[in-house]
Design a protein around this nucleic acid. Structure first.
Lengths: 200, 200
DNA sequence: AAAGTAATTGACCGGTCAGTCAACGCATGC
DNA sequence: GCATGCGTTGACTGACCGGTCAATTACTTT
């Protein structure tokens, strides 16, 4: 056995940060290596290409985020509470990222996805997969909500997709306008789709 | 006076096509020049930089598209009909582009916007502006709809933004999944937000 | 037809891109 | 205590990047 190191982990983290802060195309392998304090040779020791790194970095990011989502969508909470927690989570996370990076970043998966959907089939497929994983939380939450009769919809899967589209659309808006305030309508929009009357 | 030519127009058209088909970062000035059959020197005779060309190309694209939108949102039609026409227009346009380019392209303005929102302030602002122009059609349509009492909402501006976000979100989904079928839910989603019962 | 000006050309620039490679540590297993 | 093999190094490659420029061409005006 040779030595071990955290080079791979550093590359994954730096790559995700830089790409979601800027864009895939505008971030170079050199920049990633510089920030991660890794030699270029080492980079290509761990990853066969830049796109392979991006793939791994985004998968890793999901892996780290998943426990948080499991907590938010815990069966401990009533379905509607989960949705509210989720909306707040997104808002807080965007606020945190905006502070860290100096601008609203939107959904990293769909940003990467839109940029490369027509360029790199593997990355498109990965973005689709990551986006679908969030969708699954929504689907099961809405299935439960329907069973409990707490909302005014019939097709849980369809409604989950609509909520998901709306949330992605609002995040997109927030990024393009660079305004966190756009996210204030996240929860009301979701509740509106579900026909849940809102408090003032 | 010296000579005149259509070099500028060719560059604008080719640039819009290539960038919306692929992405800003993955399209080079050389590629644009090659496709437009223009020498690189000529390019920089007409545009001071690549981003200036993108700016001009997207503005020009709107200029060409606007008459179509004016027709769709014509006062000749009842408000709800305008929205239906709009949804169909988006779907047909995406279908046409998908045939032309070989994959679903989504909304060009928000694609460029998300890619460069955190990179290039001028392009971010232009994307915001272009997106806002569509929003204006929605706002006035909904204001009229409200006045006629044909839909179940109170705040026309807010509802316009929600519809807009939803539509952008669905387009985003369609692009990431590379599935035109996603767009079938465009009109139902909009009508759902407006509380208009749908025919089967 | 000459003057003046806008359009065009394509070679050229320095820098950066993703990716390569042969040589070199260094911790471990034996 | 040395051989094994992973981890590391950084100079290097050739293509390509956005952008420049001085010389040339072609058209309009007078």
């Amino acid at each position: 056995m040779g030595r071990t190191s955290d080079v791979k982990e550093r590359l994954l983290e730096v790559a995700f940060d830089l790409i979601s802060d800027h864009s895939y195309g505008s971030v170079s392998v050199d920049q990633i290596c510089l920030r991660a304090e890794v030699n270029k040779g080492s980079f290509y020791h761990y990853f066969p290409s830049k796109s392979d790194l991006a793939l791994a970095a985004y998968e890793e990011h999901w892996r780290e985020k998943q426990p948080e989502l499991d907590r938010i969508f815990s069966s401990q909470y009533p379905p509607l509470t989960r949705l509210q927690l989720w909306c707040n989570y997104i808002r807080e996370r965007q606020r945190w990222k905006a502070e860290k990076f100096g601008h609203v970043c939107g959904c990293p998966y769909s940003s990467l996805g839109t940029e490369l959907a027509t360029q790199d089939e593997r990355i498109r497929a990965k973005a689709e997969e990551l986006v679908d994983r969030s969708l699954r939380y929504l689907e099961s939450t809405l299935a439960e909500a329907k069973q409990q009769g707490v909302a005014g919809f019939t097709d849980a899967k369809l409604t989950a997709r609509r909520i998901h589209s709306t949330v992605l659309g609002i995040l997109l808006h927030a990024k393009i306008r660079n305004q966190l305030a756009v996210l204030d309508d996240l929860e009301p929009s979701v509740m509106n789709i579900l026909r849940i009357p809102q408090a003032a």
